[in-house]
Design a protein around this nucleic acid. Sequence first.
DNA 1: CTGGGCTCCTGTCAGC
DNA 2: TGCTGACAGGAGCCCA
Length: 279
Amino acid sequence: MPELPEVEVTRRGIDLPLRDALVLGLRLGKPLRWPLGCDPAKVQGQRIGPVLRRGKYLWVPLHPESSGGGPAGGLLLHLGMSGSLALLAQAPPPGPHDHFDLLTTQGTLRLNDPRRFGAVVWSPALDQPPAAALLARLGPEPFDPELTPQRFHAALQRHRAPIKSVLLAGGAVVGAGNIYACEALFQAGIHPGLRSDRLSRPRAEKLLAAVRATLARALTLGGSTLRDFSDVHGMSGAFQTEAAVYGRAGQACGRCGAAIRRIVQLQRSTYYCAQCQKR
DNA sequence: CTGGGCTCCTGTCAGC
DNA sequence: TGCTGACAGGAGCCCA
């Protein structure tokens, strides 16, 4: 489900409402990808700081009150394939897929995640384990001005795998998952099977611009909702309605009319137009 | 070191 | 209607 736009939409939905809220408690449901890694009582009484996003991870910083509480730290959250967060003023009893509640003075932050590929992990700091280890492999943020076309091209030159796979791996740029990688490649006119190191400098530049444009457009539309993503207010995203290729196998390409194809790369579906996207 | 396959888990949908 | 298999937005881990 959640790629960078969905995670960022989520971050924006919880950041201000939770700012400076006090943690009243924490409830865990069925196990997620990893154990929380701390005593749930440890976060009680902590104050919530600005919520950050890195790649598809969210970081909820916690600071102890001067009067007491445990040491500073935070919660690293990942929504996995099927996770979504809701901020509830009056939290109903947890459903079968509600596996994490952070009870605060500003409402309950609830993670719903049917497939449980998501995670909530306590870490003493972003740059310390376990958070640091998880973030270490992430490439640059797509909107980081330091990610120049030259650097992007250089990163692509280091891989011989298909360009689609390299985008998904996130080492050259983070945030484009299966939907947005397909869409960006279409927009850039690049075949998903093209070897990464065969992209010319101009095409790499075009691809970077397409990744940025695709993610930005998705952000303004509130992300994509294929089956179960919703923002913290329960609202669906709208990007999927204007996806050019994703999920459209057999349909006519909006640009040239050729049938959109579906292939499998890394056990994931790739959609593309063989007419518009060239090696 | 790199690339790619497997795996975690539950739900949905198409086809028989 | 019911069963079965394919597939689903991620990504860490392991092996060749």
